[in-house]
Computed example of a mutant assay.
Amino acid sequence: MKKTRLAAIDVGTTKVCTIMADADEAGIRVLGVGVTPSRGLQKGMVVNLNEARDAIKRSVGMAEQSAGYKLDTATVSITGRHIHSTNNRGVVAISRREETVRPPDVARVLEVARNVTIPGDRRMLHLLPLAYTVDGQEGVKNPVGMHGFKLEVETHMVTASATSLENLVKCFKGAGVSVDEMIFSPLSSAEATLSTDEMQNGVVLADIGGGTTDIAVYKDGNIIHTSVLPVAGYQITHDISVGLGVSWELAEQIKMKYGSVFPIAGDSEEMLSEGGNSFPHSQLTEIIRSRLEEMVRLVLMEVPTEDYQNLLRGGMVFTGGSANLPGLAELGAEVTRLPVRVGMPPAMYGVSEKLNDPAFATAIGLIMWKANDRTGIPVKATAGPSEGGGKFLGLFRKK
């Protein structure tokens, strides 16, 4: 049974997570995990090359020690407000005598869709084929073998700042890691947390990290919109710090220990104490609820239609570290009137106990992405709602 080695590194504002694994027909087995505090990044962008490089190196070293071999190449995540997305079409004629769509025609129409003018300071990150049209017949998933004279494709194109890409690649190179592929974070998070039915019916994923909230909207099984909000867990901690008059570090401790959206039932005035400071639990929950309610509404504003209830019949899924705040799903349902749940990555075999948490959805999704894409093997896990997010065409172009 042939095994394929996989490696993924999620570099976020608050943590760096490295996963080393192998995959075969039986599924994915995690061999090594390294999680360290992140340094040198703000809102997904490198602000200190040396600090970011050292944080990546520490995370990789921990994973290598557990796995027992050296990590050379990895699939990595990227996010930040510099990432933009748009939908674009490509059209080609089928000129052969038999007028049958063949794989070279599909490659040609994707190349046409990709050949749009991109500013010199930007690079294409992904070109994701959504659906094909053959002689006016829309919604075709695989046109190969179909009879027709004209082939069209609708694509979702994601571009990123060339400077941001190159700075991140420098950090990995300095840590001794070659970048195999860069994946926009919400795409990998969706791979780990969304079901096929949700993607088909229409769903919005919001990955609330430390510095950004990454958004992906799916409909009819396809990604139709992605974006990044510059508000996330950091803003919640900041509000607690200001509201309670404590340091940012103590506010983070309070959030992790006592944070929730709703007061404790029957005792909303219970006094809490941390670091020599006392405050009512209701005050803390009011601060958290206000910020999270604003974030839920900001996510809704990113949905590309005002009739979001009709588009998002699959509802809303929250993941990321801040999705662990108790009551978030209930608050989301109250605000949106949609089905809302917290997206957990699937449990996997091996040394993966700490990964069964929304905070690691992106990292797990990176591994699943490569297992689905490179090996063509259906992902199997011991638990979790995900059925795999399918295959995408990922493109990372260097200068």
Results as ranks from 00 to 15, higher is better:
residue 344 M to V: 00
residue 342 V to A: 06
residue 372 N to C: 10
residue 374 R to E: 15
residue 381 A to Q: 12
residue 376 G to K: 03
residue 368 M to I: 14
residue 315 G to D: 00
residue 368 M to P: 13
residue 327 G to Q: 04
residue 383 A to N: 14
residue 367 I to F: 03
residue 312 L to T: 01
residue 310 N to S: 15
residue 339 P to M: 09
residue 312 L to C: 00
residue 340 V to E: 00
residue 366 L to A: 01
residue 326 P to V: 11
residue 339 P to I: 02
residue 336 T to Y: 02
residue 312 L to P: 02
residue 319 T to P: 05
residue 383 A to F: 03
residue 332 G to S: 07
residue 344 M to F: 12
residue 374 R to T: 12
residue 317 V to T: 05
residue 339 P to Q: 05
residue 368 M to W: 01
residue 353 E to Y: 02
residue 319 T to L: 04
residue 311 L to C: 03
residue 330 E to T: 11
residue 326 P to I: 11
residue 341 R to S: 07
residue 381 A to K: 08
residue 382 T to W: 03
residue 385 P to E: 14
residue 368 M to R: 04
residue 383 A to M: 10
residue 375 T to W: 07
residue 336 T to W: 09
residue 359 A to L: 11
residue 312 L to S: 04
residue 341 R to K: 14
residue 373 D to C: 13
residue 326 P to E: 07
residue 378 P to E: 13
residue 312 L to R: 04
residue 312 L to V: 03
residue 326 P to L: 06
residue 346 P to A: 04
residue 377 I to M: 13
residue 343 G to S: 06
residue 327 G to D: 14
residue 373 D to F: 12
residue 358 P to I: 10
residue 363 A to P: 08
residue 321 G to M: 04
residue 355 L to Q: 09
residue 316 M to I: 14
residue 383 A to V: 02
residue 334 E to L: 09
residue 376 G to S: 06
residue 375 T to I: 00
residue 344 M to K: 06
residue 385 P to M: 14
